[in-house]
């Protein structure tokens, strides 16, 4: 009955025209095992070499800030008028400053402060932002409008300005410094959380959950939280560099950490004045600040790519 076009077969096998009774049972099964959202994200993050490298570098830095001050054998406050402004040597691996203090120890003590401010500040920002934004988004209506109005006003003022002014008013302790830095910082997180919550509220899977009888808490816990979490992780990582920068900035103007405590920014400020004579003193804190900021940015970017649900394979 049929006329063939493209006839290429000359040899047929025995079973060729018998029905294949092996009905595949796995027709309806999914071909690859599915991973949870977090497993998938982690897998993707691992592939991002830059992000992993940054992570490792940061961990190394943190370790150094913890043990560093003890390795060199000098205390960071030990003043030695005989050994002022020495270039790096076997004795003092990073050299000494104008008071003869060992720069290696000072660098890592300074690192503690800079990192602490960055991380703690970011966490404070996130927490306040999460609560504020979450409440505003979840409640909605009037309360939301009011809360957002406040955010608008606070956000209309340039952050640096506020930071500088607040630092002026408060005593320059670590706590007040963090307070100054976070007073305007939480706004970004609050806005993001709020918009996520608003979006999620309207998603069908939430409606489905409600239709199936879940309580509000369960909904928050199972549905909203994981989705918001990923945004928060990303924001946290990306806020840290800004805070480290802000602290360094303040130290440069003299409003930051005071002696004998120090931060990388303060070290930059001190050494900048002597750039003509002892340029090496500037090298280390400068590089460290830049590397830290870079690593947090790379990591944050990597996290953002890894946690984006649309990229799941």
């Amino acid at each position: 009955m049929s006329k063939t076009i493209d006839n290429q077969v000359d040899v047929y096998l025995e079973d060729d025209f018998k029905f294949d009774k092996n009905v595949s049972d796995d027709l309806e099964t999914i071909s690859r095992e599915s991973l949870t959202y977090w497993q998938d994200a982690f897998r993707r993050l691992k592939k991002n070499k830059a992000a992993i490298a940054s992570c490792i570098i940061l961990i190394l830095m943190i370790v150094m800030t913890i043990i560093g001050p003890y390795i060199s054998g000098y205390s960071y406050t030990e003043v030695d008028p005989m050994a002022r402004n020495q270039t790096p040597s076997a004795e003092h691996w990073f050299g000494t400053d104008s008071l003869g203090r060992d720069l290696f120890a000072r660098t890592w003590i300074a690192g503690r402060v800079s990192m602490a401010i960055g991380v703690i500040g970011a966490l404070v920002n996130i927490t306040v932002g999460l609560i504020y934004g979450g409440v505003a988004g979840y409640i909605g209506d009037g309360a939301d409008k009011l809360m957002m109005r406040i955010v608008e006003v606070i956000g209309s003022v340039p952050k640096m300005l506020v930071i500088i002014l607040i630092s002026m008013i408060l005593k320059p302790t670590l706590t007040s410094l963090i307070l100054a830095l976070t007073l305007t910082g939480w706004i970004g997180a609050a806005r993001m959380v709020r918009s996520q919550v608003l979006q999620l509220k309207n998603f069908d899977f939430v409606h489905a959950s409600i239709a199936l009888g879940s309580s509000p808490w369960r909904i928050i816990k199972k549905h909203m939280f994981p989705n918001v979490m990923s945004t928060l992780i990303i924001i946290t990582t990306l806020t840290v560099p800004g805070l480290i920068f802000a602290e360094a900035f303040l130290s440069f103007i003299g409003l930051g950490i005071q002696s004998p405590n120090t931060s990388w920014g303060a070290m930059c400020a001190e050494s900048q004045q002597m750039i003509l004579f002892y340029p090496y003193q500037l090298l280390v804190p400068t590089i460290l600040i830049s590397i830290t900021m870079l690593c947090f940015n790379l990591l944050g970017d990597g996290l953002r790519d890894a946690l984006d649900p649309k990229l799941r394979k």
Partner: peptide, 25 residues
């Protein structure tokens, strides 16, 4: 993109001091 990240991650005052040191001093 790495270059851009670098531009954003290096604080302006750090860059300023580096520029000052190399090109001016």
């Amino acid at each position: 993109m790495f270059l851009s990240l670098l531009c954003v991650s290096i604080p302006s005052f750090v860059l300023a001091t580096v520029l000052q040191y190399f090109f001016a001093v």
